[in-house]
Design a protein around this nucleic acid. Sequence first.
DNA 1: GCTAGACCTTGCCATTATGGCAAGGTCAAA
DNA 2: TTTGACCTTGCCATAATGGCAAGGTCTAGC
Lengths: 136, 136
Amino acid sequence: MATLLTIGDAAKASGLTAKMIRHYEQSGLLHKPARTEAGYRLYNSQQLQQLSFIHQARQLGFSLSEIQSLLQLWQNPQRESRAVKQLAEQHLAEIARKIAELKNMQQLLQQLADSCSADSSPHCAILAALAPKAAG
Amino acid sequence: MATLLTIGDAAKASGLTAKMIRHYEQSGLLHKPARTEAGYRLYNSQQLQQLSFIHQARQLGFSLSEIQSLLQLWQNPQRESRAVKQLAEQHLAEIARKIAELKNMQQLLQQLADSCSADSSPHCAILAALAPKAAG
DNA sequence: GCTAGACCTTGCCATTATGGCAAGGTCAAA
DNA sequence: TTTGACCTTGCCATAATGGCAAGGTCTAGC
């Protein structure tokens, strides 16, 4: 039998929030769901799977736009796995870029923090590093 | 002599953009600068130092709100270096948190990508991992 | 049957830091 | 004088989410 869930239950079941589900619908990630006569959204098990799919992909850091592509591939029986992997590799590259950026900040700032005496005196290596050397 | 720069030159000198400088002013990070009769903003060397300070702090990933605190400490001769270090440590913790989050994504996704054959077949471990196991 | 409370609806605003565009004023060089 | 490079303000857009408000719906208990 087709079990239909209202948005709150679909949210709980998928790990999303009702707000997110509405947002994904409005963003074109999801087809418009059925409605009760009162206008309540109703989700079937196939749509629930999609919601969980989106939740998992968000956990991996994919953007909604990337997830749209992933959903299309998922639903296309003619897909080539290389297309999926390409999306993943692209995202992995972005992740690596962000990690490198953060590690760079971390290294610089940690070094400065280590040089800060952290006492009641006003002198601080961190501020000294941020402040440009005043000319003259 | 007091050299005064227009916003474009101040932007070049500090590594910011004119748009950012106006935004920082509007956000309360910067005092309102002098103006020419025509209304052009004019920056003196002290203000230029502040702009460079902000630029450096942004490079380290501090938010504008954190930078406001840093600027206040910088300009306060009675500051205690421990207050500066505390801000830095807080930011370092946030950086570490983000790195951990990204590394987690990276590890999971890399594993999936490694399991994807990346050929013309539709089967793909990445999609399989995102898809919930359909009941029944 | 009525009422309270938990749900649903839409819509608008806020976040963060930045970019873009538009319409208009200013200034300097040719 | 004209042209081009600059400046002004103001509004819109981004990405993904949360919050609030005003209103409709449904269900359980009395």
